Simulated scan of single mutants.
Amino acid sequence: MSETAGGLREALAGLPDPRARRGVRHRLTVVVTAAVCAVVAGYRSYAAIAEWVADVPAPTALALGMTPDRRPSEAMIRRLLQAMDPQLLTAAIGVWLAGRTTAATPQAIAVDGKALRGSRTPDTPARHVMAACDQATGVVLGSIDVDGKTNEITRFAPLLDQLADLRNTVITADALHCQREHVTYLAQRGAHWILTVKGNQPHLHAQLTALPWRAVPDATRDTDRGHGRREIRSCKILSISTGIDFPNAAQAIQIRRRRRRLDQPKRFATETVYAITDLRVHQAKPAQLAAWIRGHWSIENKVHWVRDVTYDEDRSQIRTGTGPEVMAALRNAAIGALRLTGVTNIAAANRHHARDSTRPLALLGIT
């Protein structure tokens, strides 16, 4: 059957197959596409993916590119997925998902890391990956491993090197990435940035806290409810042409968050966070800056929380080879594809796609 234009199989066609050519019965595109279909339906492990493949009706198997009487086994799926290059897989999926959005390039990209806690063994620490996510959709556009010999800081530029065009894009990152080398790199790529500032930059943090915030009115203020709590956020913004020891910093931002649990209405917890940006007043309105900062934090809910809670990633027993990172990429693919259809409840969407094997195929552009 021919590849569907714009479908996932077409996007995966250029990936290198780590297997020896001799004896290959199922193409890489067939196995990986079937695995993503199974993950869309809520399946979490190699064995579960193999069960989904074994149970789908013959027409679904044919549409996936396999014969009904010869389907990939659990051992074959496991060996392939734990040998694949997760960065190339994520990049291919990211290009495919980006092509399904209305905008040519995302306005804001959040850079954030996550530990794969289930990959920890008595002898090795948990694997760690860092991803670049489109804030608006929650789609993971690129991903890179952070092994025990390095850290997120040194992997920042290699991660964003996976994205072809960053011009006029806003990169948001947490305090760990408030580094001079990072802003130099982003300037070379034509990107803007918003960086959180905390204690890892004590001199810069002291300069920001010393600014005359009391005399500055709130630029934005909003209230949100969710996860059994209420949060009130206020944002103040100051232009900083001089006095801040950080290259290209144009504005300073103070965010105050007051939270209370809905069952404890009189007990508030207050947190004050500072950020800096190279965006000038005429380039972004206060409401837009506040939305981008809030959008960075929302990646936890859109991606990481779903992988931990819905897909139970932290208890996954997949540990061999690149298996943990590849499975994370498959989960990101499923979440991203579902998000682009307007889905907000991933668990409910998993159940919906589990009830009919043709639904994941339609979602991934397979006919």
Results as ranks from 00 to 15, higher is better:
Glu3Tyr: 15
Ala5Glu: 15
Arg19Thr: 06
Gly23Glu: 10
Gly23Ser: 10
Ala34Glu: 04
Ala38Phe: 07
Ala41Trp: 02
Gly42Leu: 09
Arg44Tyr: 01
Ala47Tyr: 06
Glu51Asp: 15
Ala54Ile: 08
Pro57Trp: 00
Pro57Lys: 00
Ala61Thr: 07
Ala61Tyr: 07
Ala61Asp: 11
Leu64Asn: 02
Gly65His: 07
Arg71Pro: 13
Arg71Ile: 11
Pro72Trp: 00
Ala75Thr: 11
Arg79Met: 08
Leu80Phe: 01
Ala83Asp: 15
Met84Gln: 04
Asp85Met: 04
Ala91Asp: 12
Ala92Val: 06
Ile93Ala: 03
Val95Trp: 03
Ala98Glu: 11
Thr101Asn: 03
Thr102Gln: 12
Pro106Asp: 05
Ala108Asn: 09
Ile109Lys: 02
Arg120Lys: 10
Pro122Leu: 04
Asp123His: 13
Val129Asp: 00
Met130Asn: 03
Met130Pro: 00
Ala131Pro: 00
Ala131His: 05
Gln135Trp: 10
Ala136Leu: 11
Leu141Asn: 03
Asp147Cys: 09
Gly148Gln: 14
Gly148Tyr: 10
Lys149Gly: 14
Lys149His: 14
Asn151Val: 05
Thr154Ile: 12
Arg155Ser: 05
Phe156Leu: 11
Asp161Pro: 10
Gln162Asp: 06
Ala164Asn: 08
Ala164Pro: 01
Asp165Cys: 10
Thr172Gln: 06
Asp174Ser: 09
Asp174Pro: 11
Ala175Asp: 00
Thr184Ser: 13
Thr196Lys: 15
Leu204Trp: 01
Thr209Asp: 14
Leu211His: 00
Leu211Asp: 05
Trp213Asp: 06
Pro217Phe: 07
Thr220Leu: 07
Asp222Trp: 15
Ile240Gln: 04
Gly243Lys: 13
Ile244Met: 03
Asn248Ile: 05
Arg256Tyr: 06
Arg257His: 09
Arg259Gln: 06
Arg261Trp: 12
Asp263Lys: 09
Tyr274Lys: 01
Leu279Phe: 08
Val281Glu: 15
Lys285Asp: 14
Lys285Thr: 11
Pro286Val: 12
Gln288Phe: 11
Ala290Gln: 07
Gly295Leu: 03
Asn301Gly: 05
Asn301Val: 08
Asp308Thr: 15
Asp308Tyr: 12
Val309Leu: 14
Val309Glu: 10
Asp314Glu: 08
Ile318Thr: 13
Arg319Glu: 04
Leu338Asn: 01
Arg339Lys: 14
Thr341Trp: 04
Val343Glu: 13
Ala348Glu: 09
Asn350Leu: 09
Asp356Asn: 12
Thr358Met: 10
Pro360Cys: 10
Leu364Ile: 09
